[in-house]
Amino acid sequence: MSCWETIADYGLRSIGIGERLLPREDFTLCQQVTLIGSGMIWNIYFGFMALFSGFFLATTVAMGKAAQNPWLRKPSEWFIFVFRGSPLFIQFFFAYFLFLSLKSVSGFFDVFTSAWLGALVVLFLNTAAYSGEIFYGALLSIPKGDMEAADAYGFSGWARFRKITWPTMLRLAWPAYTNEAIFLFHATTLVYFSGFPAWKQKGDALYYANYFADKTFNPFVPYPILAGYFILLTLIIIGGFGLINRRLNRHLPQNTRSKIRLRPTLMR
């Protein structure tokens, strides 16, 4: 079987298109690269969707934590504390069994027990909490002069938030937020090891890498392939976020712009 046929058979295997059975013996390098690559679809799906939806909640939570009103502040603080203080792995397990018990109460929760939605909800809340804390930190470090200038120009309420506070907050938070995005994509590999079942062997990249390592008893091929994919993904994220970073910083003088780099002190 040529490599092109393997790609045709297994390229979209992780979402259920193509050959039904996974290869069982005589594993070729091509099969491993194709299937693990196919699993990356799920990692990208989880990472992208959670990041996108989490961004809005994170902004809300950051504003909430910075608010004067305790009715807004306390819930935000607790939300961030709960999701940042406990392991994501346990959150996945808890959420899965929670949805499982809710399922017996109402059929509405049936879909939540499958990974594509249930795990996404957990990742969404998790990344919202981590990014919320980053945004909150950035909100506190907005230069006083910027806000005074906004006041002097007569900005207030929504217009001030939309034009001054929010863009400045994003600009200051962006390097740390990039880091968070990278770790979020890494965290997506936990999904299929934490209770959420991989129906019909439709799993993510690590699921397939683990499958091959178990079958061949040789970890030295599938895991480096997985590592390669993830390093590539990390570089793409850094590139994409770098472009946004350039746009956020475009009004600043050339030498004061902050470059994106992996920061040692900010990690999940």
Binding site: H186, F193, L206, N210, F217, F220, L226, A227, F230, I231
Partner: peptide
Amino acid sequence: VVRGVPDIAFFLFFVIA
């Protein structure tokens, strides 16, 4: 390398390796 790749992949890898 360890920072560029999910830590859980390393856990699964090193235990067998």
